[in-house]
Design a protein around this nucleic acid. Structure first.
Lengths: 159, 159
DNA sequence: ATTCCTGCAAAATCTTTGCAGCTAG
DNA sequence: CTAGCTGCAAAGATTTTGCAGGAAT
């Protein structure tokens, strides 16, 4: 995926705002400064290839920013999370991974062998939420739905 | 907590094997010794009132076992988990709570105000799992479904 | 110029582990 | 007896925080 930022001369106008653009814009709108480190972190978050962990993000940026610290990654994720622009996936083993591409709740299918994450389409989920709300009298604000299993590749590769 | 099991002939029999009995039995069967601390921990896990955390369990037992350590609680939960007799609920804030009453995956509805946890009935879940399996070609082994919201009591109490 | 951000190190959590003595079976 | 368990303290692992210098606007 290619992300081009055309600076303010203004002639070029990309019509489809990427997730990257949206997050940067929202940071600006909320008075956050756009530092090089932050920019780089947002770039990774916005793509969310493989749903990276904090460590993944840190490792990807160590070359470009040799002095960068983990704390900076953590702090930026907290900031972006507070704007609702990244979804935190907490795993049973205690690790966290991040999705800034689809920052709203959605189901995941996770391979416990290769850690691949797939986003399935499940249209019955909205209905289920209503069912839960009416059964429990809760006002549902959020949800989390993850399936754990083994992907077809890993199934084929096991002897 | 009473457990009624309806046998196939339609005769209702009250099983006197409680979750507590089952877990203790399974521990014995697997060569684990039944120490007083373990017994007490299983008793709490088996009831799972309010889905206790490790700290909750520890606090509940400090009176009875003043010298007991957190490590003992952790180690016992690991043991019981390895037997599949307790479900670990990992929360977005990083905390864990435990359910030995229904140790198999099941949906939860959690009040983000008072932390109450309700188990709703959702019969469409099995079907959803099949849908996911066929769509993604994963072999699904496990799942996690949690709804977060505000319960009716908390909604009434807020001005 | 101001305000926010970063890097570093220390601190704060939460969980696991090594070990010596103890105990259930 | 003896394999397994406990208490304690130390070690790990992950995330947060205080501070002083530095950078974005």
């Amino acid at each position: 995926m290619k992300i081009n930022i055309i600076k303010s001369k203004g002639i070029e106008m990309t019509e489809h705002k990427t997730r990257f653009d949206i997050i940067i814009q929202k940071l600006r709108d909320n008075g956050h400064k756009i530092t090089p480190q932050r920019l780089a972190i947002v770039k990774i978050i916005a793509q969310s290839e493989g749903h990276p962990s904090v460590e993944d993000i840190y490792d990807q940026l160590r070359n470009a920013f040799p002095t960068m610290s983990l704390a900076t990654v953590y702090r930026n994720i907290i900031t972006i999370k507070s704007l609702g622009e990244v979804l935190e996936l907490g795993f049973p083993d205690g690790s966290n991974r991040y999705d800034g591409h689809k920052p709203y709740p959605h189901p995941h299918v996770i391979c416990i062998k290769c850690k691949k994450i797939v986003d399935p389409d499940l249209d019955s989920l909205d209905e289920m939420e209503k069912e839960v709300a009416s059964e429990t009298k809760f006002k549902i604000l959020n949800h989390r739905l993850d399936f754990f299993g083994i992907c077809s590749e890993c199934m084929a590769n096991q002897h």
